[in-house]
Each structure stands twice: as C-alpha cells, then as structure tokens.
Design a protein around this nucleic acid. Structure first.
Lengths: 150, 150
DNA sequence: GCAACTGGTCTCATTATAAGACCAGATTGA
DNA sequence: TCAATCTGGTCTTATAATGAGACCAGTTGC
C-alpha cells in the first residue's frame, strides 16, 4: 500500500512530517545549511543512492524548501539553494542536533558542534510564552481543531 | 538493501534522525505529549497498521524515549509513557509544528494550536547565544569532527 | 460464563530504498 | 581540437519496509 498521506492533516506536526519528515530530506537540508549546493556534493557527503537523491531534491524543490539556481562558479551547471522556507527549517535541525548531542553520545565521544560567529557554542533552544517566560512541555497543551482528520 | 545506518555518525542530527526520524515515531511522540498512553489509542488516533505500531513502540522503548508502565486505571494492561529523554523531544515537535503552521496552511485554514496554561498561544522558538542574544541560521556555523564518517 | 475488548502476531501484496550500470552534455588538458 | 573525465542525472534489479487485515490468547464487563 501507499505510504499514508498526512498532507491534509489538522496537525501542523503531521503536515511538516509529510513534507520533510523522511530519512534523507532533513540530512540534505542540514548539508545545505553547511554550505553544500551541488548534486555531486550531496551525493558524496551523504552516500545516498543517486536515484534517491534525485527524487528527494525534486521533492524539496516542489515543497519550496530548495530552489535551483545558476552555479555560483559561472559553469553551466545548476545548484540547489535553500529558500526562505528552507532557512526556516533551522530550528528543526537545531532541535534534532541538541537532542542528539544530549542523548546519543557517550561521554567524551566527539561530535560536530554548532557555533556562533564568535566561535562560541550556542545555547539551548527556548520556547517563550507570549510574555517571554520560558515554557516546558508541562506548561503547554494543544487545542485541537473541531475534529476532522487525524 | 538495508536502510542506511546513521547511528554511528559524527553529526548529532544524523544520529537523532536514525533514532526517531521516521514517519511514525514523531507522530507517536506527539500523541504521547497530547496524553495518549495505550496501544489502542495510538492505533486509532494515527490509523497506523498494528504491526507497524508494535515495531515503532518497541523501537521507541529500546531508544529510551518511551517506557512501559502499569495502566493508570488499575487494569492489567500496560501503558506507554514518555521518559525524560522522551520529554526532551519537545523542542523537536514544537519546531516541526511551528514550521508547519507557518508554511503548510492556507490563510484561514484551521489547525491545532499550542497554548500555555493560561490559554495563550506560545511564542516562536529562540536559539540564544551563550550571552542570550537570539541567533539565526546566518549567525552560526558547524565545527566538524576530524572526519571519519558522514 | 461468555461476548466483547486489548494488545498484540503473522501473512500477503505493494511500495520504497540501495547499489550500481549506463548515458548525454559540459569541461579540461595536451 | 578532440579525447578523457566530470556532472547530473536515468534505469534496472534485488532487498527491505509498509499497509491492510486475518487471527489469537489473555482480560474485562455483564
């Protein structure tokens, strides 16, 4: 059977996962944040099958996350660049990174680190209330829509 | 071929995706944040195949995201509850939600909303520098590890 | 005591993924 | 200039994952 479609869900989490919640898409986006732009660069860095990469890039372009632009080196080739919508994925990539750092590495095990321009490690993501007070999961609840789908 | 394994990657994003970056896992976690705890509740709410759900729940328990606990209603059945590590996934779910809200709904299209205890919509996730200044993607860069894998 | 509910397991058909052969156009180097 | 190589794909094939639902044992409700 076909993979379940969540694109019409009432829950933004479900729609987001439908759009970019597969194995490769977020890794491609992560690499794009690291400055990769060419088909071959993604393919080499990720070790992804070329057919998969072709399909994923196409899907990300269709989703408005990436766009094809003329190569920055003046050659006839195209490059893939993050759009505004793609740059907005930054908190998702960062939240995944911070959870991974906190829970998936043994003490002392090396991993890449996110730094600010000054070379300082960044802080933890914060969810503020309207008034600026930091919120934890226990401070929130979801108001659902009438009830239609999922 | 087997799905590519990222569990040993140097990049925390890759490891996080390896652990919880599949179609269903984050939806299960989202539902757990909404208070669902029983096998049947997840199955009905997600419309997921039972075999899939069994596999996903087992994987999440193995990953330390969920744990089986005695049913809160005193029956002989078990329930699945978020662990500390599971609760730490909150920013990931919120970031997906906020991106979905911003880019995947037409103007006026209804969707569920995250509220604080006072019933106020929450603010946007913020990534602070060590000194508390909010950072955007353009203010950061990744320092990679020596170079070993992906 | 028995019908319905719960939480699964198993099988089957379909779809997705991984790996790599193959290819046309662009680029490079001698 | 023109052959070798690079780029960005497409296609095929084998294997793994997914979706749907039949089936089942233990639990509960009546």
């Amino acid at each position: 059977m076909k993979r379940t479609a969540l694109a019409k869900a009432d829950c933004p989490v479900a729609r987001a996962l439908d759009a970019i919640g597969d194995w490769w898409s977020l890794l491609i986006v992560r690499d794009a944040f690291d400055g990769l732009r060419r088909f071959g660069d993604f393919q080499k860095n990720l070790g992804i099958a070329k057919g998969m990469l072709t399909a994923r890039l196409r899907k990300l372009v269709d989703a408005g996350v990436l766009e094809q632009v003329a190569a920055s080196d003046g050659s006839a080739y195209l490059e893939y660049a993050l759009t505004k919508r793609g740059h907005d994925l930054f908190p998702i990539v960062v939240s995944l990174r911070q959870w991974g750092e906190a829970h998936l590495y043994a003490r002392g095990e090396p991993h890449s680190v996110l730094l600010d321009q000054a070379g300082q490690a960044v802080g933890q993501l914060v969810l503020p209330s309207k008034s600026g007070r930091p919120l934890s999961w226990a401070d929130t609840k979801v108001r659902k829509v009438a009830a239609r789908r999922r």
